[in-house]
Amino acid sequence: MKRTILIPTDFSIDSLKFLVEAVQSVQIGSINVVFLHCAHLPNSILDLLFYSKKEIIKSLVTPTFVDACKVIRNKYQSKINSTRIEIFTGHTQAAFENFLEGNRIDEIFVPENYILKTTKNSFDPTPFIQRTELPITPVSWKQGGDIPEKNQLAELFLT
């Protein structure tokens, strides 16, 4: 049985730890993972003309995040079928529901007491997530604190 799960992310190693938690909760079958990042559409018409989700993702994702993703995929090779990153640019609940349907999301994993870091161009999707009818699984999260390996690949190994 293949399921598609949604995990909101801010491209930090911290947020990848939810993936580990999420995968561990899967007992049978494999999952497709969709990382969700919410970004505002640009205001200028020129920027809109050349708007490319690929470029946006490329500018946000760090090599460390990609590497860490690979480590986790290698670890749960039989459980994780695929991982991809999606950008949501809507501002309404209906748009979000549409997005979920379009990506065939079966379940959403939400980190508890973790606030996603947002930049000038992005926003936190938690309000939308809480109002959907899809099953939501809260993931407990332990604060890592100010450790030397912050935002390095090594951080993933040391939880």
Binding site: D67, V71, N74, K75, P148, E149, L153, F157, L158
Partner: peptide
């Protein structure tokens, strides 16, 4: 001291962490 290993597509990573004097 924690000694952990993980792999990327084409690399193997070994991480050693201590909580010493730094």
């Amino acid at each position: 001291v924690t000694l952990s290993i993980g792999t990327l597509e084409d690399k193997v990573i070994i991480v050693v962490k201590d909580t010493g004097i730094g």
